[in-house]
Every structure is written in structure tokens, then in C-alpha cells.
Amino acid sequence: MNPLIAQIAAHSPGLRDWLALTSVIFSIGLYGLLTRRNAVGILMAVELMLNSAAMNFVIFNRFCLPARMDGSVMAIFVIAVAAAEVVVGMAIFVALYRYRGTVDVNQMNTMQDPVISIEGPGDFNREVMKNINKQYKSRHDH
């Protein structure tokens, strides 16, 4: 046998290694969610986080209770739910893209507390903009 493979086989990853992996994946997902500007990228980051959590279930099932299937079943449900989540998210993003021509989350700030002027590309709803600006003005009148 190739000594490299033997060495790898002798050190097959245990519970601790797998958990480290999932936490790393979770952290990468969180980092992506906080830094990506494209909303689709954010959804991918979310998918990473959800899958790392689902992996946790499988890992615990495999190492702690190999006789039962609870954790694996949970993981399957999580995959389904995550898919649903992503589908709804994508649907919203697509609708938004059609309307504003972008899914850059940095530009998704028409609603905020200290209202500032709204600039951005795409086909804005002029009326809504006017309305928001009016609100902004009225709020500074008082």
C-alpha cells in the first residue's frame, strides 16, 4: 500500500475534526453573508451555513448513535427546508432585479432611519421616490 494512503487511513478524521470542519464552513458562510455585495452570493453563503449545521446532525449521528437514524433524517429535512428558503429568496431577488436592475445589497437602503437622498441605477419607481423624499422633507420640517 502507498505509505501516504496508509498514513491517511491511520489518521482517519474523528468527531473533533469533523466538527472543526463544520464550524469552519459555518464561519465562512457567516463571513460571506456579511461581506458579499451580491444578494445571490449572500444566498450561497446562507446555504453554506445551513449545510454546515445539517452536517453536524449527520456527524453526531454517525459518531454518537450509529444505531439510529434521527440525525440523518433531520439532515434530509434541513436540505429540503434550505431549498425552500433559497427558492423564496431567489424569487424575491429576481422580482427585485426586474424592477431595480440590481441586487446589490448596498443599494437596498431606501428604508432606513436617518433618511438620506436616494441615488441608484435602474428603473426606480418615481412616485415612491417622490413620496419618500416628501416624508424626508416633512420630517425635517418638524
Binding site: 457567516l30 453573508l33 444566498l43 451555513m49 429568496g89 427585485l96 424592477y99 445589497v105 415612491v128
Partner: peptide, 22 residues
């Protein structure tokens, strides 16, 4: 669908909601 605020609300809700879900 034809209101920028509504779509934006959905986007924010979905992202924070997915984060909480994770």
C-alpha cells in the same frame, strides 16, 4: 412587486431570516 420598498423588505427579511435559521 411594483414597489421598491416591498421587494427590499423581502430581501432584508430573507437574509436576516436565513441567518437566524442557520
Amino acid at each position: 412587486r411594483e414597489d421598491i420598498r416591498s421587494g427590499e423588505a423581502g430581501l432584508k427579511y430573507v437574509i436576516v431570516g436565513a441567518l437566524a435559521s442557520a
